[in-house]
Design a protein around this nucleic acid. Structure first.
Length: 279
DNA sequence: CGATCTACCTGATGGC
DNA sequence: TGCCATCAGGTAGATC
């Protein structure tokens, strides 16, 4: 599932392959993908225009257009952006297809249709994409510091994992990376956030930055369901470095055979941790 | 404020 | 072979 590293890999792909190329034609299949506005608004907002950049905040892609508008793309659970030769067979669940000058097509493919494509006026962002303003700091884009993380955690009774997953607290972590980060920082998912010692917050901050950067370097994580691949269809490689996520029953990489990775249910989702070294 | 639940949606997988 | 239940999880919103 796309979290910050996967979205960042896609963003970089857009910078390399899409920014600066004119969108000559737009097809919108399923209306649900453009539900925020309308089919026509997305077609009109993109056709004949060019992405002048590609930005990211948390898991949101935000690309300015030469019209003065911007396009926001959120992959949610199963969305993919794929670049392919024009005229090649479109994958199932291709909901938006943008023909680019130069003969390729940028496709938004999303089996579960949770994802979104929105063209909006940045001057009206508060009205049209209000969630962007509510995002917490992006650990990489906004230079989140240990002190900044401390401010997020301080005095909170909520489990530390709940805060890591809360995009209003910190933007970009999802279920996979929050489990990995907590393992690296030796913290249990259900530790009250406010109970962390300054040293532990510093460790957590360090783990967040290190793991997100390492995952980006590795091209993101592609799980068995292959829900995430990059712009050119390339899978990520960071799943091979996962220490706990999806590894129930395996020996803890830090404790060895003395402890095995345990799966718990937290907030309706799977949580993987080592009961020995995470406290 | 927060905990918990639900909705949204499809595909893969496991049990029988 | 099919059928049904379950799981995957990002985010918003309702409810207590």
């Amino acid at each position: 599932m796309p979290e910050l590293p996967e979205v960042e890999v896609v963003r970089r792909g857009l910078v390399t392959h899409v920014v600066g190329r004119r969108i000559t034609r737009v097809d919108v299949g399923r209306e649900r993908t453009v539900r925020r506005t309308s089919r026509q608004a997305v077609i009109d907002g993109l056709t004949g225009h060019t992405l002048t950049g590609a930005g990211r905040r948390g898991k949101y892609l935000i690309c300015p257009l030469d019209s003065g508008d911007a396009v926001m793309i959120h992959l949610r659970m199963s969305g993919q952006l794929r670049l392919a030769p024009a005229g090649s067979a479109r994958p199932a669940h291709t909901h938006v297809a943008m023909s680019l000058s130069g003969g390729e097509e940028l496709r938004f493919v999303d089996p579960r249709t949770f994802g979104e494509v929105v063209v909006f006026d940045p001057a009206r962002a508060d009205l049209e994409v209000p969630e962007l303003a509510r995002l917490g700091p992006d650990p990489l884009e906004d230079g989140l510091t240990a002190a900044g993380l401390q401010a997020v955690m301080a005095g909170r009774a909520r489990p530390v994992k709940a805060l890591l997953l809360d995009q209003h607290a910190v933007a970009g972590l999802g279920n996979i990376y929050s489990d990995e980060v907590l393992h690296a920082a030796r913290l249990r998912f259900d530790r009250p956030a406010g109970s962390l010692q300054p040293r532990q917050v510093a460790d957590l901050h360090h783990a967040i930055v290190e793991i997100l950067n390492a995952a980006i370097e590795a091209g993101g994580s592609t799980l068995a369901d292959a829900q995430y691949v990059g712009l050119s269809g390339q899978p990520g490689r960071y799943q091979h470095q996962h220490q706990v996520y999806g590894r129930e029953g395996a020996p803890c990489p830090r404790c060895g055979p003395r402890s095995s990775v345990t799966r718990a249910r937290y907030g309706g989702r799977s949580t993987f941790f080592c009961p020995r070294c995470q406290r």
